[in-house]
């Protein structure tokens, strides 16, 4: 009897192409190559405004990247703590974690971002990009918490029993036996969340954080080339999400190879 890793179904989020999924893999190639080709073609055939736009926004891509990576790392930590809290037998901790998840899930992301950004500004004067990262992480931490909870609960009970019967404490069991296995199970949904976060990070442009979208909006509002600018912005976002979903797909395949 081999123990197969359980998988978690997560509804939304970007599709992650695996080599085994032929349809999606082909679609990925088509979209990625198509987007790159379109962008290049536009830049060389109509340098004004396309080349101008492409040279205007790179620092915005960097900010988008910073916000996404920062938020996902922080969200992973918050999510792990929340997930552990949600399965805790301690009523207070469990209640607190559940309350956090319920409250966050009940408020639109955009509203939370506004709220946390300006609340942080009023209370502890946190710089803008960090505020944006915290705002995104607080939100995604709740979703991540549910992913971790599901991941931990997907590990068969016998694993914990085996560890406990060897004399391990509960925390040793969690740390050495349950979490390493759970991490593997949560990787695909965490990958999904990462892509979703990359896209949702465009919401921080509302906070005057100079991300990819805001750089585009700035360019458009000055040059009045709305259609052209948003074409470029959309293509860049598409290339970014496709690129990262591919990387996540490769990571997933690596992990699924043996064991």
């Amino acid at each position: 009897m081999t123990q197969k890793p359980h998988t978690i179904e997560v509804g939304d989020g970007a599709a992650i192409p695996l080599k085994s999924d032929k349809g999606l893999f082909t679609a990925w190639r088509l979209a990625f190559v198509g987007a790159l080709a379109t962008l290049t073609w536009l830049a060389f055939t109509r340098p004004d405004p396309y080349m101008k736009i492409i040279t205007f926004v790179p620092d915005g891509i960097l900010v988008t990247f910073k916000v996404t990576v920062g938020a996902i790392l922080l969200a992973l930590i918050i999510g792990l703590i929340t997930g552990l809290g949600r399965i805790s037998s301690n009523r207070f901790i469990n209640g607190l974690a559940s309350l956090y998840v319920e409250v966050i899930r009940g408020i639109p992301l955009l509203v939370q971002i506004f709220y946390i950004y300006y609340a942080l500004g009023r209370i502890i004067k946190v710089p803008d990009i960090l505020s944006a990262i915290i705002a995104m992480a607080v939100c995604y931490g709740a979703y991540m918490g549910e992913v971790f909870r599901a991941g931990i609960q997907s590990i068969p009970k016998g694993q914990a029993e085996a560890a406990l019967s060897l004399g391990m404490t509960r925390s040793q069991t969690m740390w050495h036996v349950i979490l390493p296995q759970a991490f593997r199970v949560v990787l695909p949904p965490v990958g999904n969340e990462f892509i979703a976060l990359l896209k949702d990070s465009s919401l921080v442009s509302i906070l005057a954080v100079a991300d990819l979208l805001r750089r585009g909006r700035e360019f458009a509002s000055e040059s009045f080339t709305y259609f052209e600018t948003y074409t470029v912005i959309a293509l860049i976002y598409l290339i970014l999400t496709l690129f990262f979903s591919k990387i996540i797909g490769i990571m997933e395949e690596r992990i699924n190879v043996d064991r």
């Binding site: 068969p156 016998g158 694993q159 085996a162 019967s165």
Partner: peptide
């Protein structure tokens, strides 16, 4: 001090 062997082995697969 008490070893236990399970029906489903419960080896750590990772």
């Amino acid at each position: 001090e008490v070893g236990m062997v399970f029906q489903s082995f419960n080896l750590f697969p990772h």
